[in-house]
C-alpha cells in the first residue's frame, strides 16, 4: 500500500505548481486551468485522508469541492467571454483600466 505521505506530497506539489502558474502566466485560460489544478490538489488531500481514516467524510467533501469548482468555472468563463467581447483579447496584462 502506498503510504499517506506520498499522496500528501503529490497534493502539495500540484498545489504549488498551480500557484506558481497562477502568479506567473499572463493568459487567463492558463490561469483558470491552474486554479482547477490547485482545487484538485486539495481533493487529493481530502481523499487520501479519508482513506487513511477509513471513513467517507473526506470523499464527500471532495465531491462538494468538484461541484463548487464546476460552478466557479462556469461563472469565470462567462466573465472571460464578456471581456473578450469588449476587448478582443484575454491577456491579463491589458486589463488595467482600474489602478490606484
Amino acid at each position: 500500500m502506498i503510504p499517506l505521505t506520498y499522496y500528501l506530497g503529490l497534493g502539495a506539489a500540484l498545489f504549488t505548481i498551480g500557484l506558481i502558474v497562477v502568479l506567473t502566466r499572463r493568459n487567463i485560460l492558463v490561469i483558470f486551468m491552474s486554479i482547477e489544478l490547485m482545487l484538485n490538489a486539495v481533493n487529493i488531500n481530502f481523499v487520501a485522508f479519508s482513506r487513511y481514516f477509513d471513513h467517507l467524510q473526506g470523499d464527500i467533501i471532495a465531491i462538494f469541492v468538484i461541484t463548487v469548482a464546476a460552478a466557479e468555472a462556469a461563472v469565470g468563463w462567462g466573465i472571460v467571454v464578456s471581456i473578450f467581447r469588449n476587448r478582443g483579447d484575454v491577456d491579463i496584462e491589458n486589463i488595467n483600466l482600474l489602478k490606484w
Partner: peptide, 13 residues
C-alpha cells in the same frame, strides 16, 4: 462596461 468586466475578473481570480 470594460470597468465592470475588469472588476469581475479581478474579484474572481
Amino acid at each position: 462596461h470594460s470597468e465592470s468586466n475588469e472588476a469581475a475578473i479581478k474579484y474572481y481570480l
